[in-house]
Each structure stands twice: as structure tokens, then as C-alpha cells.
């Protein structure tokens, strides 16, 4: 299998395992988990310097999932990489689980930062980037934030600080899936986010959120930045690649039955076979 096919399969497996995990939990944040499956596949598939059997390896690249409510997608990626057994995914949100709905660095191997209060993740990622630089390490810090999350003022405080401190090893992704909890981002609080980040002095690029090669290319480009922190805007669709979530406009948090999960998994396999993964024929 070539690298592209391997990453495509990996992203499909992340989607499938996430859907199954939420099926076991009965419900969860499906929409925003689906739209980050491809970037997670690229990061954990080829781009991040990591050792899954040594999650605390000091020279690793770090990952902060600012939109911590999408933990299940990251858990799926980590489990598939061997950070912990796949069957842990069946325990999401069960009493005593090591996989709570929001990311928790004390509970889950491979989770570098606790998140769940939107807006704090990028600041923490900037702190990690600063700390690594003080330690003389050139590890990168990746951080995925939501387009709704950008409404938090704290994000823009980090945007200022990271530029001022020249945190060039900080690489953020905005999951621009156009929706937040109550509906469309543009209806709640919009604006041109590329321009906003550019005016804050960041290196800005924009890619189709499921274009694996483009994401790879932009990560490598961002890694070459000598001073500016980078943001890669992922142009995505909330719920993408999961048939029952694609059908629903309000798909932030959904009930996931076995029937729905089976249907979604079959559809992923069908699209893979038809060469239309992840979006299907309509897109």
C-alpha cells in the first residue's frame, strides 16, 4: 500500500472506531469528531514524531486538542497507533473510564493536555512550545481548535503572544467546519479568519480538510517557518464521512444507535471501494 492509501485507510479507521466508540456510549460529539479524522490520520500516520509505546518520550511532538469535546476521535487515532488497547474505546464515558468525553492528560496515554473549556487549548499549546524551546528541543506542538472556539477572546490573546514570542514550532489547525453548537458559525459570530490570523502575524494557509496530501504539504511548509507560528485552516464539513451525521444539520451531539453506526460504517467502506471516500458522490 502506498502512503496515500495507507493514510486514507487510517482516516477511515479513525472514523469507524470513533463511531463505534460513540455507539457504545450511546451518544456523543459526532460532528466535530468526524471533521478532524483526516488531519489526525496525517499527523499520527506520518507527520508527528512520536513513540506510541513511550507516550512521554521527551523529544516527541505534542498534540493539544483545543476542541476537547472531540476526544473520541483522538482516542481512536491513539488506540489504532497502539497507545492503548482498542477495546478501551468501548469504555468511553463509562464510570471509571480512562476515556472521558473531554481530553484528560491524567487519564489517557498520549493525551498531552487536558481540555474541554474552549479557548484554553491554544494557550496551553503555546506554553508547551515555549517550554520546549527553553529546553532546547525543536519538537513541534500541534493544536486543533474549532471555528466556534475562535470566538473565545483567549484565542486571540494567544495569537498575540505566540507571534510576539516567535513560537515558530507552534502549528495550529482550525477545523473550519462552519458549525458550532447552536448552528452556523457565520450566523453566531463570523468573519474572515485567514485575514484575522494574518493580521496577527501568523503564517496562514488553507486546505481542503480531507485532502491528505495537501495537509501533509502544509504541515511540512509550516515546519519550515523560522519565526512565525502557523495556522492551517481546514476547510471541512461538520459530520463529514459519517452518513447519519451528514444528514443532520444539528449534528454537534447525537444519539448513536447500533443501526446508525452499522449504516455509517458500511457507507465508509462503500465509499472507499468506490473511490469517493470520505465525501461520497454528492460532494
Amino acid at each position: 500500500m502506498n502512503e496515500f492509501d495507507m493514510l486514507t485507510r487510517f482516516s477511515a479507521d479513525i472514523r469507524i472506531q470513533t463511531i463505534r466508540a460513540l455507539q457504545h456510549a450511546g451518544f456523543g460529539h459526532i460532528g466535530g469528531s468526524m471533521s478532524i479524522a483526516d488531519v489526525l490520520a496525517v499527523l499520527y500516520g506520518t507527520e508527528m514524531r512520536i513513540r506510541p509505546t513511550e507516550p512521554d518520550w521527551p523529544e516527541r511532538d505534542y498534540m493539544v486538542l483545543g476542541k476537547g469535546h472531540c476526544g473520541p476521535a483522538l482516542y481512536a487515532a491513539l488506540a489504532l497507533k497502539g497507545y492503548f488497547p482498542l477495546d478501551w474505546l468501548e469504555t468511553v464515558n463509562r464510570p471509571g473510564t480512562r476515556l472521558p468525553s473531554h481530553c484528560d492528560r491524567l487519564k489517557t496515554p498520549g493525551i498531552d493536555m487536558t481540555t474541554g473549556s474552549l479557548g484554553q487549548g491554544l494557550s496551553a499549546a503555546a506554553g508547551i512550545a515555549l517550554g520546549l524551546r527553553l529546553e532546547g528541543l525543536d519538537s513541534r506542538v500541534f493544536c486543533i481548535i474549532g471555528d466556534g472556539e475562535l470566538e473565545e477572546g483567549q484565542v486571540w490573546e494567544t495569537a498575540t503572544a505566540a507571534e510576539h514570542l516567535k513560537l515558530n514550532r507552534l502549528i495550529a489547525f482550525v477545523d473550519e467546519n462552519k458549525r458550532q453548537l447552536d448552528g452556523d458559525v457565520q450566523a453566531v459570530c463570523g468573519g474572515d479568519l485567514d485575514e484575522k490570523f494574518r493580521s496577527f502575524g501568523w503564517h496562514v494557509s488553507r486546505v481542503c480538510g480531507w485532502d491528505i496530501s495537501a495537509i501533509q504539504r502544509e504541515i511540512r511548509e509550516a515546519s519550515e517557518q523560522r519565526e512565525a507560528p502557523s495556522v492551517i485552516v481546514l476547510d471541512t464539513v461538520k459530520g463529514i464521512g459519517c452518513s447519519f451525521a451528514e444528514r443532520e444539520r444539528m449534528n454537534h451531539y447525537m444519539v448513536v444507535t447500533k443501526e446508525l453506526a452499522d449504516e455509517a460504517v458500511d457507507e465508509i467502506e462503500r465509499r472507499l471501494a468506490a473511490g469517493t471516500y470520505p465525501v461520497g458522490e454528492d460532494a
Binding site: G119, G148, E151, E152, Q180, L181, V188, C189
Partner: peptide, 26 residues
Amino acid sequence: CDLSASMGTGRFRARFPERSFNLGIM
């Protein structure tokens, strides 16, 4: 603050659209 669906304030917005503001996650 983008939690209208969870807080159940939708009916107030439907009744008084001009007196309801969803400012977003801020």
C-alpha cells in the same frame, strides 16, 4: 454563549427575537 440548545432558551428567542442575543463562545 452558544449553549442555547443546552440551556433551553430557544423559546424565548422565538417569542422575542429582537431581545435575544447569541453572542457565541465568549
